[in-house]
């Protein structure tokens, strides 16, 4: 399997705070399914943000699809293929309606308005979320918001999907829907989750982040 995403020797500290990542390395092969586990504040979310260049490491290298990624332009290119689902859905949904939010990513990829709408509707259809198409985003329930944020990222047809605590505040029914959606995907997954039962059902390779480094369990 070719490697899709490679992080090597990542060091990172937020300004004025002690170092949070100290030489973390992670290789995501195509189709790989990885769970990142570790205590609160151990740097899991930070690592995901570094992987797509939203944060820049103090040291270390990010390689995406065989090419080094360091500049904003290189990461902009990488983000077309690596999707990140944020921990708080409210950070992600910013358009008035679901369909507009869905089309935002495809439009950024250069699709025409009609193509973007078609892609968005196809993904809503696949995820069985078509009934939410014209809903106002900030009136969605917590579970609906979570599923829609996942849909908005999948609308970009990423090759790697990064998920930050996707089961947070999900009721069992929506958690089950999320699970079946993730099971049906044939792309690489990196999942940050404290929910052991949820992880167990996805057959993930578990990596533990401790004291700034990653190790297989």
């Amino acid at each position: 399997m070719a490697s899709a995403l490679e992080l090597e020797g990542i060091h990172f500290a937020y300004p004025g705070r002690p170092s949070i990542l100290a030489g973390a390395s992670l290789t995501v092969a195509e189709g790989d399914r990885i769970a990142l586990v570790g205590p609160n504040g151990s740097g899991k979310s930070t690592l995901l943000r570094i992987a797509v260049g939203l944060l820049r490491p103090n040291a270390g290298r990010v390689t995406g699809f065989g090419r080094p990624r360091a500049s904003e332009a290189e990461f902009q290119d990488l983000r077309r293929d690596v999707g990140l689902v944020f921990q708080d859905p409210d950070d992600q949904l910013f358009c008035p309606t679901v369909i507009e939010d869905m089309a935002f990513g495809p439009l950024n990829l250069g699709q025409s308005r009609a193509e973007a709408l078609a892609t968005s509707e196809a993904v809503l259809e696949e995820l069985d979320l078509m009934h939410l198409r014209n809903r106002v985003t900030h009136h969605l329930s917590g579970g609906e918001k979570r599923l829609v944020t996942l849909a908005t990222v999948l609308a970009m047809r990423p090759k790697v999907l990064l998920l930050d605590e996707p089961t947070n505040a999900l009721d069992p029914e929506n958690a089950a829907r999320l699970l079946s959606i993730l099971r049906g995907l044939d792309i690489a997954l990196v999942l940050v989750s404290h929910d052991a039962a949820f992880r167990a059902q996805l057959e993930l390779r578990e990596m533990r982040l401790l004291e700034g480094r990653l190790a297989a369990r």
């Binding site: 983000r79 999707g83 990829l109 970009m156």
Partner: peptide, 12 residues
């Protein structure tokens, strides 16, 4: 955070 989320979806 919203700007980051927009960039994460390839917005520039």
């Amino acid at each position: 955070r919203m700007r980051q989320a927009m960039r994460a979806r390839a917005f520039s």
